[in-house]
């Protein structure tokens, strides 16, 4: 009973009513708007995060695509380089073989030329020797033979000399 004496019915009712009024006012003008605002922000952040994730996925796809394309380009470039190298080597080989055959041709020509010149020189030398021998023989024999006969004799002599 002593405990109950601390209570005041009027105060109890007034406090209940004042709390309920406060609750309904705050619920309508404070709690609901602010909770709605928090939900909206949460949803906005969630949707933005989702769109960021989607953009990230798209970017990754594009990156993978670019990487694949780069790889293809790289492979193609490598193949082209390889092809060019092979082509170059072929050209070099061709040039080498051309140069070789050309040089061989030149050498052969040079040899033929040299042989021709050698033969000519020999001929000239022969002619000169024949002349010298004829002169010498003329002096020795002091007898002049016909030029044509002299040449025949000396030539036959020299031919015999070559054979021996």
């Amino acid at each position: 009973m002593e405990l109950l004496s601390m209570l005041s019915a009027n105060e109890l009712v007034a406090q209940t009513v004042s709390f309920l009024i406060l609750f309904f006012i705050l619920r309508a003008f404070f709690w609901k708007p602010i909770l709605k605002l928090l939900d909206e922000r949460k949803e906005k952040i969630a949707s933005e995060l989702k769109s960021i994730e989607e953009e990230k996925a798209t970017a990754q796809e594009i990156m993978a695509d670019y990487e694949a394309k780069l790889k293809t380009i790289d492979d193609a470039a490598k193949a082209e380089i390889q092809e060019a190298v092979l082509e170059g080597q072929k050209i070099i080989e061709q040039a080498k073989s051309d140069a070789r055959s050309e040089s061989e041709k030149i050498i052969i020509e040079a040899r033929a030329q040299a042989n021709r010149e050698l033969a000519m020189t020999r001929q000239e030398l022969k002619d000169e020797v024949v002349d010298l021998v004829l002169d010498a023989t003329e002096h020795l024999l002091e007898e002049k033979m016909s030029d044509r006969e002299d040449r025949r004799i000396v030539k036959s002599f020299l031919d015999n000399l070559d054979k021996t």
């Binding site: 405990l3 105060e11 406090q15 209940t16």
Partner: peptide, 15 residues
């Protein structure tokens, strides 16, 4: 402090 009165706290507790 209104909460030092039992009537106040009981009103809240009854709610």
């Amino acid at each position: 402090s209104s909460t030092s009165s039992w009537s106040t706290t009981l009103a809240l507790a009854l709610c």
